[in-house]
Structures are given as structure tokens and as C-alpha cells.
Design a protein around this nucleic acid. Structure first.
Lengths: 213, 213
DNA sequence: CGTACCCTAGTCAAAGTTGAATAGGAGGGT
DNA sequence: ACCCTCCTATTCAACTTTGACTAGGGTACG
């Protein structure tokens, strides 16, 4: 899976209704342009595609007062909300080494119930442990690991990476079980989007990199 | 960057001349289908694209004795060899969190001189340290890291991941500096491809997964 | 008062990725 | 003789990603 759909659905969801540029700004606010493939083209494509598939409902809107071309606003549908939670759950349990997917999942984790979050993360740890075992077993040749030559370093990298991932996840599970953070149904929800016109305190001050030339 | 071009160029290079199916088998031999996006479609696409760009030279060949459609064989060009080394150097120094690129780079690292390999890996460590510093500085709010809420966990993940990556790289540098492995110009080169007709000792025994139905 | 730059907002072509489909021949059973 | 399955070898349509481009309006500045 890629992170883009989860990120875009999450952004639209927190607004209720949003246009592409707003989503783009949210992702920049979250720093997502630095750790995920959330380029403008991908965002607009994801919005259109998900509208076509009935996950979002598109509204054609007159140009904004701020100028520029006419905008399209997108609204969550029931199917979209379902898909959001499906992707969220998947992002927290898959144990491939894609940090962008995991980061997106952690960003939205408080939209779940505390119990479910813990259960999903425990499944993640289980998956990592299994994968580690499979790697060490499958790629250990009979005549010792030295016979692999420098290729053994790749195995070493995978195993270490699995161990780090599992350890980090165990730490997160511990903190959640001890009561950290506010999950769904436990009080004021965490709001992580910019209101219309609000300034981004994390903005770089530079113009949108990559736009124009 | 993606790992596919480096993998395909590396495979063709070790054969001198190879057709798509041969490359595909090499990548399976290397286990690359498990840790990279090296699906048949991507491999053939990469071969065609790189032939179009002059990195490989294509030869139309009659069908093999083993049956099947006519094959196309690809041969390295000078430009292709240059590109191979460019990608190899890049794969070892970029410090994004893509394990497939790094794995491919480590797989071919012995094609470099020992000194250069060490220098590239040291640059990688420098990059990781800089990135770690940037993350901790940029995303540490004035009123303590707690104010970020669960979003702080993402930062925690990035920092931990950078630390793990740097530590693993330092270990590899140490072993290489102590004389491990055989690098370019130091003796019999490591050969990591299957000869025509040779069996893959790591084969799963299953038919090519995903082929047909 | 014009012009250069920046912000809002989105489109598009080209390239890459995915998963399934195609097609010829070999081998083995009935 | 016939069919079924496997192996060789590649193609294709659909989808995603990338980076550059388009275009309107505001604003600071000489």
C-alpha cells in the first residue's frame, strides 16, 4: 500500500469537506511532503480517483475570492470513511519497511479506540518477529553465514531493521497501555488541520518548492 | 530513486549479455522479488526504457530451444556502465529510508574500490546525522515535546530509524576497513548470477508466483 | 501605472508499477 | 492420440507517480 490515500482521506475527514489545495497545505503542515510521496499531482489524482470510486463526493465550486482557477471541494462518503479505517488498520499492521505508511498510520492512530490500537500494534510486532525468523532461517546457508560473503550484510540489515521496528512498536504499545494520548471516545479529539486562512507555524517561509520555475 | 534500474543493470553487467527472463531469474536468485518492486513487468519495462536511452543495446534473437516467444538480448553500453556506477554510488549515500535501494547497493558494493566504498558509506553516515539533527531541531516545539501529542511518536520513529541506520552503516564501514570481503581489483570477483541452465539453490520450488492463474 | 513576483488552484504528458494475459513447446499420464 | 500441467519468455491495459506547466489575481516597489 502507499500512504497517499490514507493521508488524503484523513485530511478530508478532519475538515469534513475540503478542496485539493487545502489538503495539500495540511500535508505540508504535517511535514508529509518530506517523508511521503505527497506531491501535488499525486494528491489531485488521488482525490479524483477516490471520487470516481465513490469514496468521496465532488462539488464544483466557483473560484475563491483569493483568485486562481475554480476549485473542487470533496466531501467524505460512508464508503470513504470505511476505506479510511481499513487503510488505517492496514498501515499499523503491515510490517514492510515503509516508514511513510507507518508514519501516516501513527498520525491518525488516535481515531481508533485505545484497545484496538494496541491490538493492531501487537499484530505488527508478531509480523515483524515472524519475518525476522523467516529471514534468518531461509538465508542461513549450511556452511556458515560467512559463505554468503558481502551478501550476508543485507541479511544483517534486514534483521537489525526488524528488531528496531519491533522494539519501537513495543515502546509505543507500552506508552499507550499506560494511558498516554487521547483516543477516540475519550474526550476532546486531537485536531491536526489548519482552519481556512490559518497560518502554518511549521512553514518554511519558502514558496512552494517545485512549483513553477 | 528506485532500485529496479540498478538491479537490472547489475544483472546484465554480470552476464555481459542477457535477456529479460535471465535477469528475472537472477533477481529471484538474489531474493529481490521479496524486498524490492522487481516484478516481471517492471523488469521488461526497465530493459526497454534503458535500451531506448542508450544504456543498453538490444539484439533481436530467434526463439530459444526451450520454446516460448522470441527473446531480446541486451548488452551493456559504455553509457550503461556509467549509469550503473552512478546509481550504485547514489544508492549507498542517499539516506532516505528505502531499504530496497540500500540492499541493492550493498549487493553490488564490491564492484567499487574498497576506499571508495568506505568513503561513500561515511557520507551516508554524515547525511543521516544531519537529517537527525534537522528533525529534532525543526520539530521540537517551544513548550516541550509533550505538546505534540501522539505526533511526537512519529518524530521518535524517525530519530530512532536514523540512529539505527547510522549504527548499521558504521558497523559495515568497520568490517570493510578491517579487510572483509573482496573488492574490485583485489582478486577473483564475486559472481552472483546463475549460468544458463544452472538451478537456483534458493528457489522455492513453487512455480513463478503471480504468473498465470 | 506597470511590472515583477508571489499566492491560489489545478492540469497534463511522460515515466514507472502492477497484475493478469498470451503463446509456444516439452513431458507425463491414460 | 489427447489433454493437462509446467516451463520459457514476453506483452498489455490500468493505475500511480513525477515534474513541469498553466492561469488568474494581489501587492510591493520604483
Amino acid at each position: 500500500m502507499s500512504a497517499i490515500r490514507l493521508l488524503v482521506l484523513g485530511a478530508v475527514r478532519q475538515h469534513g469537506r475540503a478542496h485539493g489545495y487545502q489538503v495539500r497545505n495540511d500535508l505540508e503542515y504535517w511535514g508529509a511532503h518530506e517523508w511521503s510521496n505527497a506531491k501535488p499531482g499525486s494528491i489531485y489524482h488521488a482525490l479524483k480517483q477516490m471520487a470516481k470510486q465513490g469514496l468521496l463526493h465532488a462539488h464544483e465550486i466557483a473560484p475563491s475570492t483569493a483568485g486562481g482557477p475554480p476549485r473542487t471541494e470533496y466531501e467524505m462518503t460512508g464508503k470513504g470513511t470505511e476505506e479510511f479505517f481499513r487503510l488505517l488498520r492496514e498501515s499499523l499492521t503491515v510490517y514492510d519497511q515503509k516508514m511513510d505508511v507507518l508514519s501516516a498510520g501513527v498520525g491518525f492512530i488516535v481515531e481508533l479506540k485505545r484497545d484496538e490500537a494496541v491490538a493492531l500494534l501487537k499484530e505488527r510486532v508478531r509480523g515483524l518477529e515472524e519475518w525476522r525468523a523467516a529471514v534468518t532461517e531461509y538465508y542461513t546457508p549450511e556452511d556458515g553465514p560467512q559463505s554468503l560473503g558481502h551478501i550476508g550484510e543485507i541479511m544483517n540489515l534486514w534483521v537489525g531493521s526488524a528488531d528496531f521496528g519491533a522494539e519501537w512498536t513495543r515502546g509505543l504499545i507500552r506508552r499507550i497501555e499506560e494511558g498516554a494520548y487521547t483516543f477516540s471516545g475519550e474526550g476532546d479529539p486531537f485536531v491536526g488541520v489548519l482552519a481556512e486562512g490559518e497560518e502554518n507555524p511549521y512553514a518554511t517561509g519558502a514558496p512552494h518548492e517545485g512549483d513553477q520555475g
